[in-house]
């Protein structure tokens, strides 16, 4: 009995962490190549909406995932157009993409479904199983680890973020690498949003990402821009979230109740500490934001 309860808790941690892990991996590609990724939140929200809308339209959860990935690539290209082609400020452009998601999705949702708050529920038979996002997220981590460590593209990505001149000298345009990385970012972040609406819930609800894009960014920094560590950081976020839910109303001897809100913010406090260099060190790609 006891072990199944622990297994249940373990699963709920991973379920919460899965979209975060995907978004953190998405951000990893972009940030390693030198482009700050504030727009993860917007990418995820678009992914969640597009996936739910197309899943109900085509009557298939997988169709939803594919459409979210496709739309994510389009948004990645749009963001690339702003920051690579027009060389606009990356933080402002990222904020603009987020605002486009916050405002644009309700407008389109109103057009398609006559409500801004929710898409129609996806048929239970078409919903993807609950284990699917966990496996997907861990698979993406493995692939990302392989790409970064073992492939030429992974090397180019790192060099584009650290020393773009060297890449140019080797005959590879840093901007091309960045375009590719932004497409991957869009696709994977879209997928992260999609599993929220298609796997972990039965429809898109208004603003359902609720800051997960920013959380993933925190996970990425906490994980020092490395795939395995970032995945671990996202799982830590999941642990704090689940602990927060379990702690509600629990009274401990001596200390009394532990406030859930304070457990929830623990990962952000740790990230802030690491950012300040108080504990450990998390060094950003040196050309981050300067490309």
């Amino acid at each position: 009995m006891e072990s199944t309860a622990i297994f249940e808790i373990f699963l709920s941690v991973l379920r919460f962490a899965a979209p975060l892990i995907l978004a953190a991996m998405a951000g990893l590609y972009s940030e390693r190549s030198g482009i700050i990724q504030i727009a993860l939140e917007g990418f995820m929200l678009f992914g969640a909406f597009v996936a739910a809308a197309s899943a109900t339209h085509f009557g298939s959860g997988f169709a939803g995932l594919f459409c979210a990935v496709g739309f994510g690539i389009v948004m990645g290209l749009f963001y690339g157009f702003l920051v690579i082609q027009l060389k606009t400020d990356q933080i402002v452009s990222g904020t603009a993409v987020n605002m486009l998601a916050w405002g644009g999705i309700p407008v389109v949702s109103k057009m398609l479904f006559d409500v801004t708050s929710k898409t129609p529920a996806i048929d239970a038979s078409e919903r993807l199983p609950q284990w699917f996002p966990i496996v997907l997220a861990l698979a993406v981590v493995a692939v990302t680890y392989f790409v970064i460590k073992k492939t030429p593209f992974g090397l180019w990505l790192t060099v584009a973020g650290e020393k773009p001149e060297a890449l140019l000298a080797a005959g590879i345009r840093p901007s091309s690498v960045r375009w590719a990385s932004l497409m991957i970012t869009g696709a994977v972040a879209g997928l992260g949003g999609a599993i929220l609406s298609v796997c972990l819930a039965s429809s898109y609800t208004r603003n359902m990402t609720a800051g997960r894009g920013f959380m993933a960014l925190a996970g990425l920094i906490l994980g020092k821009w490395r795939p395995i560590q970032a995945c671990g950081a996202c799982i830590l976020f999941g642990v704090c979230e689940v602990a927060q839910l379990k702690l509600q109303g629990t009274v401990f001897p001596l200390i009394g109740t532990v406030p859930g809100q304070l457990v929830q913010i623990l990962p952000y406090v740790i990230t802030l500490w690491i950012l300040a260099g108080v504990v450990g060190e998390s060094r950003a790609p040196s050309k981050l934001g300067q490309s």
Binding site: I36, I38, I91, G211, F214, M215, L217, A218, I221, I265, Y268, V269, T271, L272, L275, A276
Partner: peptide, 10 residues
């Protein structure tokens, strides 16, 4: 930017 996003959550 990262610092102030964390502080927003906190």
């Amino acid at each position: 930017v990262i610092g102030s996003i964390m502080l927003n959550f906190i």
